[in-house]
Amino acid sequence: MSAKPLVFIDGDQGTTGLQIHERLSGRGDLRLLTLPEHDRKNAARRAEAINHCDIAILCLPDAPAREAAASITNPAVRVIDASSAHRTDPLWVYGLPEMSAAQSTRIAQAQRVSNPGCYPTGAITLLRPLVQAALVPADYPIAIHAVSGYSGGGRARVEAHEGPCALDAPAFQIYGLQLEHKHTPEIEQHAGLSHRPFFLPSYGSFRQGIALTIPLQLRHLPPHTTGAQLHACLAQHYADAAHVEVIELADAQTMAQLDPQVLNGTNQLRLGVHINERRGQVLLSAVFDNLGKGASGAAVQNLDLMLHHAATK
């Protein structure tokens, strides 16, 4: 790799691509390559660009992302795919550094990295350590409810809320009622679940941010499991994670509400364990920016891991 690696953003006019470009544009340790508007749909020009760069970041719908990855003939090119096209593909490294002690190294060394989905980022960081510790059974009937800012729906939904017809945009909208949301297999696989979780997403009339919750009944967990044990497991797992924080147990117990926008503009993820001992119920929560740790921030975090590894080779 050259002294200043060349990073190609394919699809830099979409919501995620624009955010990645903004995060990288002021940096002096890399060069950015984007295509002029008249070349963006030119397959030959895009193939030339992707084969000329050091690392490509694909900010495309699933089908074009697969086509872009297939167009790579230069074995030195490394890829971060921000679409959902490769998130359950065993040939791609899943780009969630905090999921295990070895994952950052795997991402750093990978040729192909699939950036996590926004909702799965919250669900997997909550569930995976608890399932691995056998505090939550892999076959527990998991139910995940989440509300995202409307930017999670891409340019069309942003236009609906910010364009000339914004007054007609719904204040709140639940979707995915067919229970076939494309993020569900990703959550099942990377959280270590043995059965498909129930996942119901929604959009609010705010631009960005996510609040995701997962209810648990203590009576359905292994005998004598407590909410404090669940919290301790998460706190230990993320003790050294720079971008994931676990709310102190006492603070979580006094919280009256979750603000999905509180971490907007950051790459941080905040996890909580809210316990009602008398009722035998626990609520797991995750709050983060769907355009930050849920998309562009995560992509830049993975890019930095890959760049650092290349610089030290």
Rank of each mutant, 00 (worst) to 15 (best):
F172V: 06
I142V: 14
G163L: 09
I144Q: 08
P164N: 13
A143M: 06
I144L: 09
V136H: 01
E162I: 15
G163A: 13
A146E: 03
P120A: 02
R128T: 07
Y175P: 10
C118Y: 09
V131A: 02
P129S: 05
Y150E: 00
L126M: 12
L167D: 08
E159C: 04
H145N: 10
A171E: 05
H145F: 11
G154Q: 02
V136G: 01
Y140N: 08
V131I: 15
P164R: 09
Q173Y: 08
R155D: 11
C118L: 13
H161I: 08
H161Q: 06
A160S: 10
A171W: 10
S151Y: 00
P141M: 03
Y119H: 14
Q173S: 15
A171C: 12
P120H: 02
G176K: 04
G122T: 11
G152H: 05
A138Q: 14
I144V: 06
Y119W: 10
A138R: 11
P129H: 08
A156F: 12
L126A: 03
V147C: 02
S151I: 00
L130N: 11
P120V: 02
V158W: 00
Y150R: 02
A146T: 08
Y150D: 00
Y175F: 15
D168E: 15
A133Q: 04
A143Y: 04
V136W: 06
F172Q: 07
R157G: 00
E159A: 14
A138L: 12
G122L: 03
A143K: 12
C165G: 15
Y150M: 00
V136Q: 00
L127Q: 08
H145P: 02
D139Y: 13
R157L: 07
R128I: 04
G149Q: 07
T121M: 06
F172H: 12
V158C: 10
V147T: 10
L126R: 04
G154L: 01
C165F: 13
Q132D: 13
E162V: 09
A156H: 14
T125G: 04
E159I: 13
L135S: 06
P164L: 13
Q132A: 12
H145W: 05
Y119P: 01
A146H: 02
R128A: 11
S151R: 00
Q132L: 10
A156S: 10
V147P: 01
D139A: 14
A138V: 13
F172N: 01
H161A: 14
D139V: 14
L167F: 14
I144E: 01
C165W: 15
V131E: 01
A166T: 11
V136M: 02
